[in-house]
């Protein structure tokens, strides 16, 4: 019984960190799906979102309002930043070789990271508590409020996003552009604004991810986005990049395996195991867990 409880606790730990990976992975996957660009700056947008949230947390707690409201200005700010990046850096290169856009993405990432170091100093800054430390207790088993909120929010967002893409006109436009942007233009879809919307949504999700992140790990620093971004990217590839439920599954698998490896195999081997899984999955199914094998058209 004790061992089972222990296993459940580790599972919840994994679900919590996995949910954050999943939210970030959604941003990678959406952008990749529509413009076939790996947006390496996505991790740093999370970092900017975290600083923005921190700024509003101080304002909100000063005004006596609940601090989790900081997620709204952070989303707006990140969405605008994402659109700005797209307009300034990626749109002019949309029809150049893919490697140019990739290098530009790395450049934007470095720009944001070093800019933040200049503005906010490289020292980590502490974040006040966002959710109260209360825990839900069932007998000898307890789950922290932060863990529940993280898991529920990310699943809800994934479901919402899926309905948006499948059901609405804007979502249909997105899918059309991702299939063939020339043909979409012919049928009257505004390709530029559709792509811009994708960047805005992806970055706003990153902002939600960043608020959940700083509620779980109460520290903000300019380099916080790089490793998180990398792991989320791996999660997106693992689940099948370009596919929305794939990002979710990839993120949760990464989180759970990390947690269980740390708990039952060795706390030092967790990264090795996670990346080992990635290699095996890609060997067996190169397009990822949910990926479809697309045939090259002649």
């Amino acid at each position: 019984m004790d061992a089972l409880l222990q296993f459940l606790r580790q599972l919840i730990n994994g679900l919590q960190s996995g949910s954050i990976y999943a939210l970030v992975a959604l941003g990678y996957t959406m952008v990749y799906g529509i413009v076939k660009l790996i947006n390496f700056a996505h991790g740093d947008i999370i970092m900017i979102g975290a600083y923005c949230a921190l700024f509003f947390i101080t304002l909100l707690s000063g005004a006596g309002l609940p601090v989790w409201l900081c997620v709204i200005p952070a989303m707006v700010f990140c969405a605008l930043l994402g659109m700005l990046c797209e307009r300034v850096a990626y749109r002019p290169l949309r029809h150049s070789p893919r490697i140019s856009s990739l290098i530009t993405a790395i450049g934007i990432s470095l720009l944001l990271q070093n800019g933040a170091q200049l503005i906010f100093s490289p020292n980590p800054q502490s974040v006040p508590k966002i959710f109260s430390a209360e825990a839900l207790t069932f007998g000898s088993f307890s789950i922290s409020l932060g863990a529940i909120i993280t898991i529920v929010v990310s699943i809800a967002i994934m479901a919402g996003l899926q309905t948006f893409v499948k059901g609405t006109r804007m979502g249909k436009a997105m899918r059309a552009v991702s299939e063939d942007d020339g043909a979409s233009k012919l049928v009257g879809i505004n390709v530029n604004s559709t792509i811009q919307l994708t960047f805005a949504i992806g970055s706003a999700l990153a902002a939600i991810g960043s608020v959940l992140y700083i509620s779980a790990y109460p520290q903000v620093q300019p380099t916080m986005g790089s490793l998180l971004g990398l792991k989320a990217f791996v999660a997106a590839v693992l689940g099948g990049i370009g596919i929305i439920p794939g990002a979710m599954i990839g993120g949760l698998i990464m989180g759970i395996f990390e947690s269980l490896t740390k708990a039952y195999i060795s706390s030092q081997l967790s990264d090795a195991v996670v990346f080992g899984i990635l290699i095996i999955v890609l060997l067996v199914k190169p397009s990822g867990i949910l990926g479809k094998n697309t045939k090259e058209k002649v």
Partner: peptide
């Protein structure tokens, strides 16, 4: 940044 598994 995540130590929950070890700490559990």
């Amino acid at each position: 940044v995540d130590f929950r598994a070890q700490l559990t």
